[in-house]
Amino acid sequence: MIPGDGEQTGEVTAEGGHGAVPTTGVPTGQGVRRRDWPLYEVFVRGKRGLNHVHVGSVHAADAEMALHNARDVYTRRNEGVSIWVVKAEDVTASSPTEKDPFFAPAGDKVYRHPTFYVIPEEVPHL
């Protein structure tokens, strides 16, 4: 018998994507960080001329291994020509919960958009 056998798992719904898995009696973890490899955020440039775009994250012992892992996980089908990896703890982000005040300065400056200006239709190339 394996550990966990015979546990009452209660209702089983079709969550899990690849097939139904139990939804009750399943722990969700303590969220305590183990001393495992650090987390790196991965950014991929899809092709020349495009920005690097965030695609996900990998764990790795160091940055070089993170690059290799990112290549294996995120570019198995030529999805990229360049990869950046950044330690997740080094990313500084605005908080979505501060969204309104943080981005408010741009809110009342409609004159920064070309559509703000009314030009007669017959004027060409504008």
């Binding site: 966990g4 690849h18 973890g29 303590q30």
Partner: peptide, 17 residues
């Protein structure tokens, strides 16, 4: 934590399809 999720799998506390 990813390592914790692996532990929950190998100890059969979380399941799979």
């Amino acid at each position: 934590d990813r390592e914790e999720l692996t532990e929950l799998l190998v100890s059969a506390r979380q399941k799979y399809s």
